[in-house]
């Protein structure tokens, strides 16, 4: 699986309160959530984002609350992949559970600028900055998580488990 898009670049500690502010949490509709995605950190994000675009961030992306609305909003806004130096653990879990692609890569943040075109190969973890002609290697997923993602997230996993019990 591959994706290619324009980069939105952010720094350390992008928290779930700026990804989707709590004032919008009175809905669970992905499209409504997406309409306010990143509003408090990047007011023009929603206007500029196109299907397939990529977020590149530094450390501890998604820190703060456990709201799954955060990865849901990012995914529904059209983002195909988030690349960060590290992720907050609940965000990491949530992204995998809902099938938002995320990659941990120590060097990508320094080597990619906002607006660059980047392509990602999820099988190999290879990230290519098409604009600059450079490449970066992301950490591969542990096998259990690969299985979870390949199966379509946690819900199909639960369905399979329940079926096996019967």
């Amino acid at each position: 699986m591959q994706t290619k898009g324009t980069v939105f670049r952010y720094n350390d500690n992008v928290d779930t309160d700026v990804i989707i502010p709590a004032r919008y949490l009175n809905t669970i509709d992905p499209a409504e959530l997406a309409a306010h995605c990143m509003e408090d950190i990047d007011a023009t994000f929603v206007k500029r984002v196109k299907q397939g675009d990529i977020i590149v961030a530094a450390k501890n992306f998604g820190c703060g609350s456990s709201r799954e609305h955060a990865p849901i909003a990012i995914k529904a806004a059209g983002i195909s992949c988030v690349i960060a130096q590290s992720f907050a653990r609940i965000f990491y879990r949530n992204a995998i559970n809902i099938g938002l692609a995320i990659l941990e890569c120590p060097d990508a943040h320094d080597g990619i600028a906002a607006g660059d075109t980047v392509s990602v190969d999820f099988d190999t973890g290879k990230i290519t900055n098409v604009t600059k002609g450079t490449t970066f290697q992301a950490a591969p997923f542990p096998p259990f998580m690969k299985e979870l993602i390949a199966g379509g997230g946690l819900v199909p996993y639960v369905q399979a488990k329940l079926a096996a019990k019967k």
């Binding site: 709201r67 799954e68 609940i90 879990r93 946690l154």
Partner: peptide, 17 residues
């Protein structure tokens, strides 16, 4: 703390990874 899908799985199975 976990997300909502984890909570759903927990309510269904009584287990979590």
């Amino acid at each position: 703390g976990v997300g909502s899908t984890d909570m759903a799985a927990g309510m269904a199975l009584g287990t979590a990874w």
